[in-house]
Design a protein around this nucleic acid. Structure first.
Length: 775
DNA sequence: TAAAAGAACTTTTTT
DNA sequence: AGTTCTTTTA
């Protein structure tokens, strides 16, 4: 049992206490993943059949990594039959095999938030409810919270308090909307993310034999990131564990950051109440970070009221102080970060992959991408608008979804007239109304046009178009029986006219859309090949569709090994670690977000978010903030985040360069701790410098001097692209530096260039639009 | 009916 | 600023 060596006392206890309820409170960096991995390995070595183990993780990525690590200890074949994955993916799988209990088809579609929002918009329209009063997003959030708290439509109408509550919020139609939305999903044979949990609960409560089956199967249950489970998840775990009570939950209340998604921190805080016999183990030694980082993080989190008492400490070196950089603008901040990474890469020989840039909102990525690209620093953006959410990708996926589940009305509306085939809004409305009146599915009408035609009141031209469309879908479905998913998808892309339609658009955007569809095809092929190698793989089309619905960005996972800087939101960084972390955008109203600054609970969650971010760092942490920032299309002034002043200044070092101090008083900031720690004394010379700059700005530019601004504009209208030749080194606004591989076309208005970019690969660009600059 | 132009809204975080 | 929904025009 080599794997037990090298564990500290607490870790050893957590790994070897196999029976009964166990709560592991794992402070940041305390070797949580290691404990979980070893614990599962230990179970298997102690002759527990892996088939009887269920391990629930927070992300698919975490599950995959953990499975690989376990396989190294106990061997590939033993690890395979382990059930490990996110709540959503594990229970989606169970729901598929038990779907008949709930009256769902086993090939039900999984709606992502965008899909469910579309359905909701339609429901609002059908009920003639003003979408201004009932903002779809708000309605969606409300329904989501019902579902996560196990309030079904029936339960809602039986609960006067809830109804009253919605009436007070001026949303008295919520019940009706909720009902109609649930009905629509049911009719479409679809479940949204929350349904995967809610319906699992329904399955386990309504059908004791199903519950018994899975209770017997999952004798040992482990839940990672327990602090971020919601009520619905909590109940599933509780039900499954109630027979054997071999339940191990691992988490850290200080790292609960998903309450906006219904996560309930009391699940972990009250674990002892649910299982009075539970053993609690605290892992407090942080092996990841320097003392300075751990101490700074502790000071901040101690401001929170609601938490377990913990004493996280580090025996590592004391380490450097956290550097704090005040910048003028978002662009300035990004430049600072990029230069810092560049310098450390050169002088300290750090790898690019040693760095992470963490931010609160996805919209902050752009500035950093620009700055990194200018310095030719390779990087990878995690999360953000996922590849699978792009319109052209979703469109092709909608076709595929319809093949698998033809009741999916949402997929049907998306593509029935895309690309345009003369089935316009009027026709679609007629169809919907007619189908409603006859209470049959639209697809039923489409499938039996001959039968329904006399009553439909559509002319022959339209009827032909409809029957052609449906014949095409049917042909794809037949093909799916004999051909593999990739071949069918290729055929769909061609025969539906989608590819041709996209190819007709020769703008750079249009070209990139075609590339995205190509990329989707590639990722599909990759998926099929991967699944074919697995014994229990599922290379089918529906398997692929489920995979992309439940895991954010599989397509990028291939080139993960490269040496590149990681950019991601703090939420996404949970569970990861980096030698150097740049925590950026530390400003009031950004972090903490303006959306969650009103109540103490909200601020406490933001503070935990700060704690998570800081404890990602192993050796060095950098904080930065901007005095003004470009957002919502204009420049906004910003104040430093309150979290900065909550870090005791003994852990900080302020590093503002000299050039900047002339602007120090420029922003009209309220006095704060940062004015007490100027990086260098402000002199009169500097102040007067500032004055001259300010005064000179409004003055007219002297005739004999070339204004600097004009001199910098190399490419005002794209005209300079004209004398570009094959072999030239060029710079593109978005793609960075690259080499022109070849040029095509004689019409000066329509010359295409193939450019090989250093980081973005080869792109086909149209010179007129690409605004390439020769360098 | 489809493309083009204009208006409105957007930004919190994700399975 | 960028996207998406809405209205106008051919």
């Amino acid at each position: 049992m080599d794997y037990l060596k090298g564990l500290n006392e607490a870790q050893y206890e957590a790994v070897t206490t196999l029976e009964g309820p166990l709560m592991v409170l794992a402070g940041a960096g305390s070797g949580k993943t290691r404990v979980l991995t070893m614990r599962i390995a230990h179970l298997i070595t102690n002759l527990v059949d892996p088939f009887n183990i269920l391990a629930l993780t927070f992300t698919n990525k975490a599950a995959k990594e953990m499975k690989e690590r376990i396989a190294k200890v106990v061997g590939q074949s033993e690890a395979r039959s382990l059930w490990m994955g996110t709540f959503h993916s594990v229970f989606a799988r169970i729901l598929r095999s038990e779907a008949h209990y709930l009256g769902f088809p086993s090939n039900f579609t999984i709606y992502d938030s965008q899909d469910s929002l579309n359905v909701l918009r339609k429901v609002l329209k059908d009920l003639s409810i003003d979408a201004d009063l009932y903002k779809p997003k708000k309605v969606q959030a409300r329904i989501s919270s019902y579902k996560n708290n196990l309030i079904t439509v029936k339960a809602y109408f039986n609960n006067p308090e809830l109804i009253e509550n919605d009436e007070r919020a001026n949303m008295k139609h919520m019940g009706a909307i909720y009902q109609k939305y649930v009905d629509a999903c049911y009719r479409n044979g679809a479940m949204d993310f929350d349904d995967l949990l809610l319906r699992t609960n329904e399955l386990l409560t309504r059908f004791p034999e199903v519950l018994a089956k899975y209770q017997d199967r999952f004798r040992y249950i482990l839940v990672d990131e327990y602090q971020d489970t919601n009520h619905s998840q909590y109940l599933i775990v509780k039900a499954l564990a109630s027979k054997f009570e071999n339940i191990c939950v691992v988490g850290d209340d200080a790292q609960s950051i998903y309450s906006f998604r219904g996560a309930n921190i009391f699940n972990i805080l009250n674990f002892k109440k649910d299982y009075p016999d539970a053993v609690t183990v605290s892992l407090e030694q942080n092996y990841r970070s320097t003392q300075n980082i751990v101490n700074a993080a502790n000071v901040v989190i101690s401001k929170n009221v609601q938490q377990f008492k913990k004493n996280v400490f580090s025996d590592n070196e004391e380490g450097e102080k956290i550097k704090v950089y005040r910048s003028l603008s978002d662009a300035d901040e990004a430049n600072f970060v990029a230069s810092n990474i560049w310098e450390q890469h050169n002088s300290l020989q750090r790898r690019f992959s040693d760095f992470a840039i963490l931010y609160r909102t996805n919209s902050q990525t752009r500035a950093f991408e620009d700055a990194l690209r200018r310095k030719n620093i390779p990087y990878k953006v995690y999360g953000g608008l996922s590849f699978y959410q792009r319109k052209e990708v979703k469109d092709l996926i909608a076709y595929l979804r319809l093949l698998v589940n033809e009741n999916d009305a949402e997929a049907l509306t998306r593509i029935i007239n895309y690309p345009a085939r003369g089935i316009g809004e009027t026709t679609q409305n007629k169809l919907t109304v007619f189908a409603d009146k006859k209470s049959v599915a639209i697809t039923e009408v489409l499938g039996n046009l001959g039968h329904y035609a006399p009553e439909l009141g559509l002319n022959n031209g339209i009827l032909t178009k409809l029957s052609d469309f449906w014949a095409m879908i049917k042909a794809f479905q037949v093909m799916l029986k004999s051909e593999n998913a990739y071949t069918v998808a290729m055929e769909v892309a061609k025969r539906s006219g989608l590819i041709k339609f996209l190819k007709d658009d020769q703008t750079p955007e249009g070209i990139s859309r075609v590339e995205n569809v190509q990329e989707l095809m590639n990722s599909m092929q990759g998926y099929i090949e991967e699944q074919q190698q697995l014994e229990d793989g599922d290379p089918s089309l529906s398997g692929f569709l489920e995979n992309i619905a439940l895991s954010a960005d599989t397509q990028n996972d291939k080139n993960e090994t490269g040496d590149q800087v990681s950019l991601m939101t703090i939420h996404l960084s949970k569970g990861l670690e980096f030698p150097v972390v740049h925590l950026v955008g530390l400003e009031e109203n950004l972090f903490p977000s303006f959306m969650s600054s009103s109540t103490r609970e909200e601020i406490e969650e933001e503070r935990r978010l700060f704690y998570v971010a800081l404890t990602r760092a192993e050796k060095q942490a950098y904080f930065s903030y901007a005095v003004s920032r470009f957002q919502w299309g204009k420049i906004t002034d910003a104040e430093p985040s309150r979290f900065l002043s909550e870090v005791d200044s003994q852990y900080l070092e302020f590093i503002n360069p000299a050039v900047e101090s002339r602007f120090v008083n420029h922003s009209g900031l309220k006095s704060n701790i940062f004015d007490e720690h100027p990086s260098e004394p402000r002199s009169f010379t500097r102040k007067s410098e500032k004055k001259t700059i300010e005064r000179s700005e409004p003055q007219p530019v002297p005739q004999n001097l070339k204004p600097v601004a004009t001199a910098r504009i190399i490419n005002p209208s794209g005209a300079s692209s004209e004398n570009i030749e094959v072999g030239d080194q060029v710079r593109h606004d978005r793609f960075g530096v690259g080499e022109v591989m070849f040029l095509d076309g004689t019409d000066p208005q329509n010359i295409k260039a193939k450019v090989k970019f250093q980081h973005e690969g080869e792109k086909n660009l149209i010179l007129k639009f690409a605004k390439l600059t020769k360098i």
